[in-house]
Amino acid sequence: MLPVRAGIGLRHPHHREFLERQPPIGFVEVHSENFFGDGGRDLDVLGRVRADHAVSLHGVGLSLGRADGVDPAHLQRLARLVARIEPAVVSDHLCWGAIGDAHWNDLLPLPMTPAALDVVATAVSRVQDTLRRPILVENVSAYVQPDLADAMPEAEFVAQLVARTGCGLLLDLNNVYVNALNHGFDAQTAIDAMPAVAVRELHLAGHFVGPDCVIDHHGDRVCDAVWALHARFVAQHGARPTLIEWDTDLPTLDVLLEEAAHAQRILDRTRESVDA
């Protein structure tokens, strides 16, 4: 379990500074695949970070929704990393990025059909059996919408996935917001439809408003509308571990810590209101 505090995504250019400063932060999240090696400096850094911080291993490559099932070699490398780091939480995405021998290494949109639910539930169960722990599954942003028969709303798909596998949810509020803008629905309504009790972590990030659609580029500060969604969620459902994600045009570590401090103030406000 992650501490119910704000955390930051730790990326390679900040490794050294993070270790030197040891900033007071609730937890640290890294991309699992960046630590799939056998040894070396990056794993050494992660081990040292882990000594003082709760670590979340966030995967981008399991491809839980690929129709032909997760790659056993990829899962074994994840299992080795989990055994080595003993993270507070392990997560990946409700998406696919590969089929057969072809990989696109992206978080591609999944048709929310009963067949896809079978595929994802089988994959999640297999991962959880291998890791001997529940994982969190995250909603992704999408620029196009699959058009297959029998598709169900994402909230229903997710609720059934939780019921069938016992997994938790990693709710990315920016992704819901981006999708709402791109596909013309109300973000708050979509969040309200999600099974909040299963949400174990929240993600916040910045996005880019492009000419054709809004792009979830993780390259800017969290926008006011997404901060409002965050404040509303924690006011309604209680505080959750909240991560600031930043991947492109990485700013200074201080900017990430400022954003995390903002999230922490929202979590603290909720806790005070609960205590009172």
Binding site: W104, D106, L108, Y143, V144, Q145, P146, D147, L148, N182, G210, D212, C213, I215
Partner: peptide, 18 residues
């Protein structure tokens, strides 16, 4: 393109993001 919802021109432009 695979089966996607929406008008073809918009979908084609957005698919370019991927």
């Amino acid at each position: 393109l695979p089966a996607l919802r929406g008008d073809a021109a918009t979908v084609a432009r957005r698919f370019g993001v991927y």
